[in-house]
Amino acid sequence: MSDEWSSEEPENLLSQTDVVIEGIKDMIISGELGPGDRLPIEKDLAAAFGVSRGPLREGVRALVLLGVLGTRRGSGTYVTSLDAARLLSPVGFLVDLYQPSSSAHLSAVRRVLEVEAVGHAATAVGQAELDILTAILEDIDRDLAHDPDGPVLQAVIDADSRFHATIARAGGNPVLAALVESLVSRTFRSRLWRAIHERGANRQTQAEHRAILEALRRGDADAARIQMAAHLLAVEQSVEHQENALPDQTEPEG
């Protein structure tokens, strides 16, 4: 039987792998498998899909990479929790592969998503989230206290990312929050470039953050959207300026 598996042609292997992926997806959609459920044993699953062991394993491996399945040593393969952050993690991989020349496109998409996210957050944010956002901005203030116009620190970039991610999560839409976090965590170089090349950018960014926070405190969704749009548009314009100024260079490393 092993000879049969090893003789699969690449084209046939690909098509059988697709059968496995679609088959497992259908089992989850139909409710036959749910979050935390263990997959049937390999022999039974292969028979159900009419495939051999090689394509079956390839299909399972692909779904593991996509966050749909997970393996437990000595226990088998299980359906994951299927939460949005896990299932949308490949978006971050896609963003990582984008070239510097596409940074403006990513920033534009981020702006569209975050403007909507902050609008949701304005009507749903609680005091706990507001306290977290306040503490994040205070941390940034302390990091910048000695040289507000100097090189931006990695700690500031990390805090900036936490600020935006916290707002996205506060809106209560886990899919939107996962998309925003994938973009925020991977577009930090835009923030870095702005800080390096625009005098007063650190102070301006903090002022923009505080305006967003104040709109959230008031529960003013329209104002929050306007402030977020203005803030991210400034970053987006910096990226466009960067691309025009450095057409043959990659983005600066953080």
Rank of each mutant, 00 (worst) to 15 (best):
S2D: 14
S2N: 14
L13K: 15
Q16M: 11
T17Y: 06
D18T: 14
V19E: 12
V19K: 14
I21R: 09
G23P: 03
L33W: 06
P35E: 03
G36Y: 00
L39D: 02
P40N: 08
E42K: 04
K43L: 08
A47K: 15
A48V: 07
G50I: 12
R53W: 13
P55R: 05
E58W: 11
R61H: 15
R61D: 13
L65W: 10
L69F: 02
T71S: 12
T71E: 15
R72Y: 06
G76T: 07
Y78I: 07
T80V: 05
D83C: 05
V91F: 12
G92P: 04
D96K: 05
L97K: 11
R110V: 11
R111E: 13
E114R: 00
V115A: 12
G119Y: 09
A121L: 05
A121Y: 13
I136F: 08
E138M: 10
D143L: 15
L153Y: 01
L153I: 07
H164A: 11
H164M: 10
H164F: 05
I167A: 04
I167V: 15
N173P: 04
L179R: 07
E181N: 02
E181P: 01
V184K: 01
S190R: 01
L192Q: 03
R194D: 03
H197N: 03
R199M: 08
G200Q: 06
A201W: 07
R203V: 15
E208V: 08
H209R: 14
R210N: 09
A211G: 07
A211F: 14
L213N: 10
R217P: 11
D220R: 03
A223M: 08
A223V: 00
A223F: 00
A224S: 15
A224F: 11
Q227F: 12
L233Q: 15
L233H: 10
E236F: 00
E236I: 00
L246C: 10
T250S: 12
G254R: 06
